[in-house]
Design a protein around this nucleic acid. Structure first.
Lengths: 183, 183
DNA sequence: TTTAAAAGTAAGCGATCGCTCACTTATCTT
DNA sequence: AAGATAAGTGAGCGATCGCTTACTTTTAAA
């Protein structure tokens, strides 16, 4: 409902009707409307982050590890597009402050270790974490957004193919790889 | 109001009260609530896109032109942070379909020309427009988002400095620049 | 089989929603 | 100055909002 009609189109009464239960039932499980939204967001985001680390190990080589994460994220998107759209919406809602603190806990550790290892092994240039993140993942999420919007920048709607993803990843890796020292 | 309380916290009565006018007055200028939001979004987005092209020319060298656009966008953000937050919110709202078509018209031409020129001059590798866009701008917008959220990935909140922006831009340019042919 | 806790419900509260109508005030034309 | 048009208003409509209360049904332990 939130993906289709937005947060302002989402109401507790409406949800109860759609679910075929009484509004009062909802308040057995959630304190109020906001609690429902926040708890749902946390649940979905947790699943997504856990899946993004599937078969991932912070000891992996950088290129290999980053590709794995891109694949995990892309796969999750293809299998649960609604979840991804939901989280993206929530990320830009005024409620996001109240969830962001709760969802990155274990995730931050693993990612931090991965980046730290990669820098130590000279597979990744030393960067502030935010700069790294902006380069390493923002392009992928933008591609996904183009795909869901099917906005036509060219004459054809964009599709997130294996090919365009790999192409973009290669360029990201090029940006993040240390320059070989002139010998 | 929308930035602070979200689309679902925004009401016509509330707005009228805050503005010190009668609700009926608002309906002189806008057909309904949705029309108000959409028209406002278009107006703000138009201003932003126009400013992003300030002192820009599609004939510029690629690195120079992209830096100019990053600077314009960053400056606009520093001077009108609320506008930027507003647009970001709207970009992820269910109403965005109804505005996206209307705001990229002239912008698309100029940007298309710029990219086309850069590719012809071998200052930029040949890419689908969406891939280019994802690499060229998504990292900047992610940095801006980190800045506004002041989410602490490290021990200190992130700030969008001239330095971190230039660093990120350099890496983006490295990704997008053709490899020199081995001679 | 009794009983008490848990789960669920219908009905509806007060508040607010988007929006309109009958009307008044300001502005402009001639 | 008179009349026409535009701009703005206060009051409030019906609908829906988030949420609660008094009550019934289901579940499960004793």
């Amino acid at each position: 409902m939130i993906v289709k009609e937005g947060l302002d189109g989402f109401g507790v009464n409406k949800l109860a009707r759609a679910a075929g239960v009484s509004p009062a039932t909802i308040y057995i499980y959630y304190k109020d409307r906001e609690d429902l939204i926040i708890q749902t967001t946390i649940r979905v985001a947790d699943t997504m982050l856990r899946e993004s680390l599937h078969d991932f190990d912070p000891e992996m080589h950088f290129a290999e590890g980053l590709r794995k994460q891109w694949q995990n994220r892309a796969n999750h998107f293809l299998q649960h597009p609604l979840d991804v759209e939901f989280i993206e919406k929530m990320r830009y809602s005024h409620l996001y402050d109240k969830v962001s603190g709760q969802i990155y806990l274990t995730f931050k550790d693993v990612m931090g270790k991965f980046v730290h290892n990669a820098i130590e092994r000279k597979e990744l240039i030393a960067l502030p974490f935010e700069v790294y993140w902006s380069l390493a993942f923002a392009p992928l999420y933008q591609l996904i957004k183009f795909h869901t919007q099917k906005k036509t920048f060219g004459h054809l709607p964009f599709e997130l193919t294996e090919e365009s993803m790999e192409q973009t990843l290669q360029l990201v890796l090029k940006a993040l790889k240390p320059d070989p020292l002139p010998s």
